[in-house]
């Protein structure tokens, strides 16, 4: 299985490093920068970065439409932080950033600027085990979830992780921690999606 990490800007190396640390021989992490690169992928991670810059770079690379259509065809996609903003169907005050995708509304910088960035621990029942260390950097927040959306985690009543079928979003950065559980969870989603397609 080829797991792509969108390699245009932001925390790209960190996600690739986490995928390599899973030491799962069935997965092959690749950096995606072009439409041919995307065609090789069975799944895609959109990393943190600046969402305005990422959107401009996606458009310039000709990746916006191919990602949207692959998403509609069921390709698993995970967006962290800025990636979550791009995957939300609605983005408060910045609708032009949305690639479509998950039935949620997201607000940018809900916690404030860098001096309000923080680390918080919260349970993610789907993962089991101890609380997850959430690293929030100028983080966005989910302010509405549609009917089909499963809330995976809340931190202080704020929704911080959601799943809708083959799409996953987190407003924090698991790739900046040593906790591999969410990366493993996403790989399970990808394996299930691949198995489904094979039927």
């Amino acid at each position: 299985m080829h797991i792509g990490v969108l390699g245009l800007q932001g925390g790209v190396a960190e996600h690739l490093e986490m995928l390599s640390r899973l030491s799962d021989e069935t997965i092959n992490p690749i950096e995606v920068r072009t439409p041919p690169g995307l065609r090789q992928c069975d799944a895609l991670i959109i990393p943190g970065g600046e969402s305005t810059a990422l959107r401009i770079l996606l458009d310039a690379a000709g990746l916006t439409d191919p990602i949207s259509s692959r998403m509609q065809q069921g390709m698993p996609v995970w967006g962290t932080c800025a990636g979550m903003i791009l995957l939300a169907q609605k983005v408060l005050y910045h609708q032009n950033l949305s690639l479509g995708g998950m039935d949620i509304t997201v607000a940018r910088n809900v916690y404030g600027r860098q001096q309000e960035s923080f680390v918080a621990e919260f349970p993610i029942p789907e993962l089991g085990g101890p609380p997850f260390p959430g690293v929030f950097i100028r983080a966005p927040g989910v302010i509405r979830t549609g009917d089909g959306v499963q809330v995976l985690a809340r931190s202080d009543d704020q929704v911080v992780a959601c799943r809708e079928q083959h799409l996953l979003v987190t407003s924090f950065h698991p790739e900046l921690t040593d906790d591999l559980r969410l990366h493993r969870y996403f790989i399970h989603m990808c394996t299930a999606a691949c198995a489904e397609r094979a039927h």
Partner: peptide, 18 residues
């Protein structure tokens, strides 16, 4: 130490940027 880590992490999110 936590704030310093968050501050280094913000710079990581700027990588590949102008």
């Amino acid at each position: 130490a936590e704030q310093y880590a968050l501050n280094r992490d913000l710079a990581k999110m700027l990588k590949g940027g102008v």
